[in-house]
Structure formats: structure tokens, C-alpha cells
Design a protein around this nucleic acid. Structure first.
Lengths: 209, 209
DNA sequence: GGTACACTGCACCATCGGTACAGTGATCCG
DNA sequence: CGGATCACTGTACCGATGGTGCAGTGTACC
């Protein structure tokens, strides 16, 4: 090549990550070849393995980037909910509404959950990939659980409830609804499940006058 | 080979299916090689392609067999629930309890949902595979929805509720909880989610005395 | 005895992940 | 200005795997 390519250091690696993330969510990890990625980004095979030790390391990097981005995004939603009200239950319900609205606003069916995508390809990935996914889920469990516990202080549930499972339930519903919406090709499946969760949470903590 | 192998016609094909199903649920489709399957079953490559046009056709056959077995199994649970009571809500709740108990009795974490596993490997499979998965989910939606509608006749919910989404919710929770339990390696995640669903259904249709 | 079934055995192909390594142009540092 | 380092290129090569093609073979059934 004779033209001068803008020297972009981290950018090539980042473009690889983006191309790979899109491709993996679209058609799966195994169906995404390294050769197709380097063709898209415009580098050679040697260049790919300069950035990533192997295909697993690529997934590792995608997951890391994705998980922090997801965390920032949800933190943003929590912050907006905190602006609206300080009351724990109301705040959580606002957060859920914001989450549902954002999911409903997506143009197509949700591209899919990377966690779920890795979950069913066990042996293709390293320990690290699975640990990343695991830590991420445990993180969300802990965060939602803390909020639900706080809510239960001021709104004691009418009967004993498994708050940890209720915390997991949101993540479970999101992942499950993504599978459903991808499989039956209905983009409103996800927001509708979140709506049910909102109702459930509201009913569990409804103050029995 | 000199020893006389018992002539087992359909059995070889069936043993292939079983070996493949186990392997795919354990480590994923892409990580399961044809060569490992034929080694396990004790045939040659030619024998494999005599039974299946390609790897996708294998998945197709596994799904078909699996989905009918699953349907029979759930029908059995419904039948047992019908023996216990004829009242629609009580019957559905008995069914959910049976489902939860069976899931809790599994020795390890649930091996995983074939539907979900196919969902994230889009381009590796044929149209048929995806259509099978789709029809299966739509089937369960219709069946649960019919039951919920019947329940709503005798137990009008205290406020309007999306019964179709509530029907989907069970499938969504099961699939999502399998992902969760596989990822964090906690076998009780699935029964705990079903327990929450039981409570939700009971509360939605609780007669406001 | 003939036909169909359920394979075996073997040769071969393309794709893909991955290795190895020498070379090269741009950039940064002293 | 020189040297080191970065971010690659280019090429050659390897093994595993999915898949094809086809001739042959033992068994069962009619």
C-alpha cells in the first residue's frame, strides 16, 4: 500500500473488537472467522495475532469492554432515577421504567446478551471468559439485592420473600426475554417482561394499608 | 471386525443423537466434533453422513426428538396436577410446584436449554432448526396462555394484566435461570425462580376478598 | 437368489485457527 | 541524528475439522 494510513494505535484493536462484537451477536462466535474480521478492518492475520493471543482472548476483551459499558449505562439510569425521587421503592420503579423504555426504543430485537452467548459455548473459551461472566452476574445480584433490602426496610413485604432470587429475577428475565424475542422475532417481548417485573415488585412491596 | 454386531437399524442413529445431545449441552455445538461422536458410537465417518446430511441435520433431529420428549414430560406434569384438583388456578399452581420440585431434584445444574443454545449460533444452523425452536416457544405460549385465560375467568385479576406476557414469563424464567445457574454455578437458581413465579401467579389471581 | 439396508474404508478437498518469523515504515526519545 | 519501539505486512506452513465421493461388504428380508 502506498497511501499513508492514519496511525491509529489503539484504534485498530478497537475496530477489531467492535467488528467482532457485532458479528458474534449477529451470528455467533463459531460462525465468526478471524479472516472475515481482518478483511473488514483491513489488516492481515499477523496483525490480528499481534493484538490477540487467540480467538478466546478476543472474546475476553470484548466482554471486558462490554461489561464496563453496560455498567456505566445502568449507572446512568440509576442516576436519572435518583434525580426523580429519593424514596427507595419509587426510585427502583423509576429505574425499571427507564430500562423498559430504552429497551422498547430499540429499532430491532435486542442483539443479544454476550453472557448468554458465551454460556452455551463452554469449552471454546478460557476460564477467564467464564469468570468475567460470572462476576458480572454476581455483581448485578449484589447491587439489586442491596436496593431490594433497602426497600424492604420501609415497605415490609406482606409475606416472606426470597430477595436474592428477586434480584436475580431481573437479569434472568432480561436474558430469557432476549432469547424469546430473538427466537420468535418479536421485539416487544423484552419490555413486556420488564413491565411484568415492575408490577411484581410493586405488588410485593405494596404497603398493606 | 470379526465379532457379530447386533443389527440395530434405528439404534445407531439414535445413539448418535443421544451422544450428540449430551455433548452439545455439555460443551456447545461448535466444540462437538463429528469424529468424537462416531468414535463414541463406534461407526465411521461414512456411516455418520449416511444418517445425517450434515451437522445441521443432526441438530435438527436432536431438536425434534427433544421437543417432543419435553412436551410429553410437561403433559405428564399437567396430568398429575389434574388428578390433584380440577380448579384451574389450583391446578396450575400444582403444576408449577411439580415443575419446581423436579428441577430442584436434578443432581447438577440443569444441562441447559437446547433452544437457547441454538439461539446464539444463528448462522450455523438451517432455517428448519430456527423454525422448530420458534414453533416450540409459540406452542408453550399458546398453552400457558389458554390456562391463564381460563384462570382469569374465575379469578379476575385485581388490575389488567398482560396474560400473554405472563404465559411467556415461565419459559423466559426457565431459560434465563438456566443461563444464570450455569454461569454462576448454582443449581438452585432455577427452582427459586419458579418459586417466585408461583407467588406472582398466586398474587395476580388472588381473589380480593 | 436378489435387493435393499446399513454401513466400512479410503482418498481427498477447503476452511480455519494458529505458529513462526523476517522485514518495514512511522513515531517517539534522548 | 540515531536507535528503539510500535504496529503492523507478507509469506509459508501446520493440524483439526466439516464435508464429498464412491466402491465394496455383510446382513436381513422377500
Amino acid at each position: 500500500m502506498s497511501f499513508i494510513k492514519p496511525r491509529s494505535t489503539a484504534t485498530t484493536r478497537d475496530r477489531l473488537l467492535t467488528a467482532a462484537e457485532v458479528a458474534i451477536l449477529d451470528k455467533g462466535f463459531a460462525a465468526t472467522s478471524i479472516e472475515e474480521l481482518i478483511a473488514e478492518v483491513g489488516i492481515t492475520k499477523g496483525g490480528f495475532f499481534y493484538h490477540f493471543r487467540d480467538k478466546s482472548a478476543l472474546v475476553e476483551a470484548i466482554l471486558e469492554r462490554h461489561l464496563t459499558a453496560e455498567e456505566d449505562w445502568l449507572d446512568g439510569l440509576f442516576a436519572r432515577a435518583a434525580e426523580a425521587t429519593t424514596e427507595p421503592l419509587a426510585q427502583f420503579l423509576v429505574f425499571l421504567r427507564l430500562l423498559r423504555e430504552q429497551m422498547a426504543a430499540l429499532p430491532d430485537v435486542h442483539p443479544g446478551c454476550l453472557i448468554a452467548a458465551t454460556c452455551f459455548q463452554e469449552r471454546l473459551f478460557t476460564r477467564t471468559v467464564h469468570d468475567l461472566a460470572r462476576q458480572n452476574l454476581l455483581n448485578w445480584r449484589a447491587r439489586f439485592h442491596a436496593r431490594l433490602t433497602a426497600i424492604a426496610q420501609t415497605h415490609p413485604p406482606n409475606s416472606k420473600i426470597d430477595l436474592e432470587a428477586l434480584a436475580d429475577m431481573l437479569v434472568v428475565l432480561v436474558d430469557g426475554a432476549i432469547i424469546l424475542s430473538k427466537t420468535v422475532r418479536e421485539k416487544d417481548a423484552l419490555p413486556r417482561q420488564i413491565a411484568l417485573y415492575e408490577r411484581f415488585v410493586a405488588e410485593v412491596f405494596r404497603d398493606v394499608g
